[in-house]
Write a protein that binds this DNA or RNA. Structure first.
Length: 951
RNA sequence: GCGAGGGUAGCCAAGCACGGAAACGGCGCAGGACUUAGGAUCCUGUCCUUAGCGGUACAAGGGUUCGAAUCCCUUCCCUCGCACCA
């Protein structure tokens, strides 16, 4: 049967909407449950991966609703930053590739104009997320509470958050080094290149500037390896570059013009006082820092004026470039400068670091291994990295390194740098590893920002209190529960504001700053409780000053005071306050694994820093990704399966089931359309089986209805347990596989009583409702059950019937055994004889069932006390030896096995068995008189495992 | 390097926090059923052996235990994070 997914989905979605199922209103008589997922950033279309986590949140919310909770599941978007700005800019300048991407994902061409404005882009995508993704997937969210971080009311909340952080003494100011465009202000340098047009792979490196004294001036070299200063033997200058002399703090420095420009952004009072060609510096002597030794200045072409300061100190022992250039200079490359040969000869490398696997000069070993022969070799870069990496992680300082001898390189590096900074021989300097160009076309540099604000997440008391609280939380997966404490521990100050062309909230203490993207998106679950009042106009942003939130969130002051201070209606204020008290704390914050090191820790910190004990979050749930064939199907690459097309093709329920069941929440899954299709078919089968069950109307074989009820009671119990620990996969296995098998067995066995089938179907459909709600409603309506499945309660736990379950297992086992035997025996049998266990064996099990713990000696003893059994002593003790361990391991349910009349059951099922096995089935009791048993099989018969003879 | 996680049958993937039946499922494959036909559906099988009850198995090797994929130790291999990116 081909179903019209979209029509069916829309039909039920509008029913839910009519009934207001997603709406969450305070109801003090009912327990509440509040769940959110970390809202997405507004940077374009989402892909099928994002819906994985969102679907989990909806399914959990639906389940809780069906268990009687008043559920709040709100949604929103995060538009802070420059995602929307750069998006708008790309549309404005007619970026073809980007516009093509938009159109491919379903953006109507006549709406492209709206996207030229960042605010328009935000609104456009807000609507895409809500209408095309979340509603289309059938989420029962409270749409009235939708909010976005760039809305004015949200901004008021964030400003309040920062006032409270300040109150708690957690806002601090100190200098900070950030990538900045001279026009646009601070930019994000990352692989997505949203702010920049070139250099997304660049990293910020911390150089140590080393000052080499010559007369009253300093030649300034930049190094990443301050630990190598003991190996300095000469100094490199590029003879073809004209260097700048700059004044810096009363000193005169010589650096490249590029470095001069960079230094002006990072140091105070830098100005140019002269110039000098590099050529003129060749042959100078200068005093190296730390070692205070005079070393010569030599020419080297590899000195790039745009890297560091364009001047380089030479440590040939550990720097492949230096090693090659020194060799070249000695071999005559420096001849034209008239340097005395004795001087060149006197320059000999000094071994300073010992690394396992290397000799006394790691640089020499590296170049030799790679077969590098000259200074211009491009592989020198790789050699450099290798030596650096090995040296840093495995090296130790040799005895040539004065007080640092014997130290591990990792440690010596910091100590030596600090020592030189303290003695005034060195300073720090930051630079990007490659050229970075802003979208506006300007070059991006690292700039010092003096009055940068930070949130002090390194605060020891806050850290401790936050860790303490995290211990009491429900955090999944369990590894993360442990790990999060570590993450909280290493968190330090975090820059929380920035300048430039950014969307976001103004920093309340200095309006030139805008609060950055993490800081404004971690306390926000709380705001969903309030956003509804702003959205429907009961409160306006003007009412939302500090006193407003102080009152409604922290219950500070009196209602009258709050009403007077805020200008808001007192009744409304009181409602908001009571709402907050009712809904908070948040029960589950669900987010992708990328949040583990940033969002979740800050989420915990902010709650702990600002809110009282009673409002601390209760749970965190982390979901892993859906990945593409090769790499992550990221938003920025745009190549992922668009959601619109996918949901049309596979159906919302098919995709929801795929997400829920394809793997545990805590592993990455590779997207596969085929797999989704499989789940669609699976769902189809479930539906048609339920439909078949609902239409059943015949008499079931004796006991089978009791079995069905018992089986579904057991499934329901398992389903609840799984859902209660948010194990959607296990729950789905039960609802879409195990229940299906049970029902199919029931029908196959000839079951079909109307009442029993409908009862089971009711439970079954309700178990489907969290993950595949549309299909569930469809079936619910077809069955004629009252109301909507989504607003029904899950039935209470049902009664189990051990004997009935045992009996059906017996039949399944028997069929399987016969098939096994047939397989190895070759041909099929004409007649099947089944021998049930003799009554004395059942008697043994009956005795065992009455005992607490069962072991061989005690069971044997107990059996021998029985006169009837004692007559059969030898066989009994043998049987006990075999069966006692199985009972104690609960392989066998002794109670059920002994109480069931197997012979009667098998005889009554003989017709069924004959049909199933395609052969006449005769049931005999192993202790019957005049037993027909030509092969002596009957001796093997035991309860639960009848003996079989194929003829 | 530091921190974390993992290696399960042809493939994907549960189980491992609380050790107890060759190890949930799915896909693939094989046989059968239903069919004009079937990529649809249903049944059965799918480590070796064998008329079902045996053997060997959960990266490799040791250990603890009556019993280990599950606990401990060693080795090999593979991911991920290391920050200002929701």
């Amino acid at each position: 049967m081909v179903r019209d997914y979209e029509g069916m989905e829309r039909r039920w979605q509008s029913k839910w909407e009519e009934r207001g199922l997603g709406r969450a209103d305070r109801d003090e008589g009912r327990p509440k449950f509040m769940i959110i997922f970390a809202y997405p950033g507004v940077t374009g279309f989402l892909h099928v991966g994002h819906l994985r986590g969102y679907t989990y949140a909806d399914a959990i919310g639906r389940y809780k609703r069906m268990e009687g909770f008043n559920v709040m599941f709100p949604v929103g978007t995060h538009a802070t930053g420059n995602g929307a700005i750069s998006l708008a800019a790309r549309v404005s300048r007619g970026d073809e590739g980007f516009i093509d991407y938009l159109v491919r994902n379903g953006c109507p061409e006549d709406r492209l104009g709206e996207l030229k404005d960042p605010a328009g882009a935000v609104e456009f995508f807000n609507s895409v997320y809500v209408e095309d993704y979340w509603k289309r997937f059938g989420f029962l969210a409270d749409w009235r509470r939708f909010t976005s971080t760039v809305r004015p009311d949200y901004g008021k909340f964030i400003q309040w958050q920062f006032r409270k952080l300040s109150e708690a003494g957690l806002l601090i100011q100190k200098p900070y080094f950030s990538a900045v465009c001279p026009h646009c202000g601070p930019v994000a340098v990352d692989a997505s290149e949203t702010d920049i047009s070139k250099g997304g792979g660049a990293e910020t490196q911390e150089y140590t500037l080393l000052k080499f004294k010559r007369g009253g001036e300093f030649l300034v070299a930049a190094t990443l390896r301050p630990e190598t200063v003991y190996g300095q033997v000469c100094f490199w200058v590029n003879p073809d570059v004209t260097y700048s002399k700059i004044k810096k703090g009363g000193e005169v420095w010589i650096v490249s013009p590029e470095a001069e420009r960079k230094l002006m952004l990072q140091k105070d009072g830098v100005e140019r006082v002269g110039q000098i060609p590099g050529r003129d510096m060749v042959g100078w002597m200068c005093e190296a820092p730390m070692i205070r030794r005079e070393i010569p200045v030599l020419p080297a072409a590899f000195c790039d004026p745009d890297v560091g300061t364009g001047l380089v100190t030479s440590v040939p022992s550990d720097a492949p470039d230096d090693w090659m250039s020194l060799a070249a200079a000695k071999a005559g490359a420096a001849d034209s400068y008239g340097l005395p040969q004795e001087l060149l000869d006197s320059i000999v490398p000094i071994p300073i670091i010992s690394i396992e696997g290397y000799g006394e000069f790691p640089a020499r070993d590296a170049v030799e291994r790679m077969g590098i022969t000259g200074p211009g070799d491009p592989r020198l870069d790789e050699a450099k990295k290798q030596v650096y990496k090995d040296g840093y992680h495995m090296g130790r300082m040799r005895e040539t390194c004065g007080p640092f001898s014997g130290m591990r390189v990792e440690e010596a590096k910091d100590k030596m740098r600090q020592a030189m900074i303290d003695s005034g021989e060195a300073e720090l300097f930051y630079d990007l590893t490659e050229e970075v160009v802003c979208r506006c076309g300007e070059r991006v540099f690292i700039k010092r920002i003096d009055d940068q604000w930070f949130v002090d997440y390194g605060n020891a008391e806050l850290t401790e209190r936050t860790r303490e609280h995290s211990r009491s939380m429900d955090i999944m997966p369990p590894e993360y529960r442990e790990n999060v404490r570590g993450v909280l521990g290493w968190f330090r100050e975090r820059a929380c504001v920035r300048q430039g062309n950014w969307l976001g909230t103004r920093f309340p203490f200095d309006e030139k700053w805008i609060i950055e993207a993490i800081s404004d998106s971690t306390l926000y679950p709380l705001y969903y409780i309030i956003s509804i009042y702003a959205n429907d106009g009961r409160i306006s942003p003007e009412n939302m000053g500090e006193e407003f939130f102080d009152y409604v969130v922290l219950s500070r002051g009196t209602l009258a005071e709050a009403a007077a201070a805020t200008g808001a209606d007192a009744g409304v204020l009181e409602d908001v306050r009571r709402d907050v008290g009712y809904w908070y704390p948040l029960d589950v914050n669900l987010g992708g694994k990328e949040h583990m090191t940033v969002h979740f820790p800050v989420f915990l910190f902010n709650h702990r820093a600002i809110l009282p004990d009673s409002m601390q979050p209760r749970g965190i749930l982390v979901n892993w990704y859906v990945t593409g064939k090769k790499d992550k199907i990221s938003k920025s690459k745009g190549g992922a399966q668009p959601i619109r097309g996918a949901v049309r093709e596979y159906g919302a329920d098919g995709m929801r089931l795929y997400y829920a069941h394809v793997a545990s929440m805590f592993v990455d899954v590779e997207w596969s359309g085929e797999a989704v299709e499989m789940y669609g078919q699976r769902l189809e089968r479930v539906m048609s089986t339920i439909e078949e069950a609902l239409s059943a109307d015949r008499e079931s074989p004796e006991g089978l209805d009791r079995w069905l009820a018992s089986a579904f009671a057991s499934r329901l119990e398992g389903f609840r347990k799984a859902m209660d620990r948010y194990d959607l996969r296990q729950a789905s296995t039960i609802a879409y596989f195990e229940m299906l098998n049970d029902m199919r067995w029931y029908l196959r066995r000839g079951g079909g009583s109307r009442a029993a089938a409908r009862d089971a179907a009711r439970t079954w459909i309700l178990c489907m409702a969290p993950v595949t709600p549309h299909s569930a409603e469809e079936l619910w309506a077809a069955a004629g059950f009252e109301g909507l499945a989504s607003e029904s309660r899950l039935p209470p736990a049902g009664e189990r019937d051990g004997a009935a379950e045992y009996g059906e297992e017996l039949l399944k086992g028997l069929i399987s055994d016969v098939a096994q035997i047939r397989k190895v025996a070759g041909s099929g049998a004409g007649r099947i004889i089944v021998y049930t266990a003799p009554s004395w064996k059942r008697e043994v099990l009956r005795i065992a069932a009455g005992m607490g713990s069962v072991d061989i000696p005690s069971l044997t003893k107990a059996c021998m006390a029985d006169e009837g059994l004692r007559r059969n002593g030898k066989a009994v003790s043998e049987f006990v030896k075999k069966v006692a361990p199985e009972i104690s391991r609960s392989v066998i349910d002794a109670g059920a096995a002994s109480s069931l009349d197997e012979a009667a059951l098998l005889r009554s099922a003989a017709g069924f068995l004959s049909a199933e096995l395609g052969a006449e089935v005769t049931v005999l009791s192993a202790d019957g008189p005049d037993l027909y048993d030509p092969a002596g099989k009957s001796r093997a018969a035991s309860p639960g495992r009848p003996a079989i003879l194929l003829e």
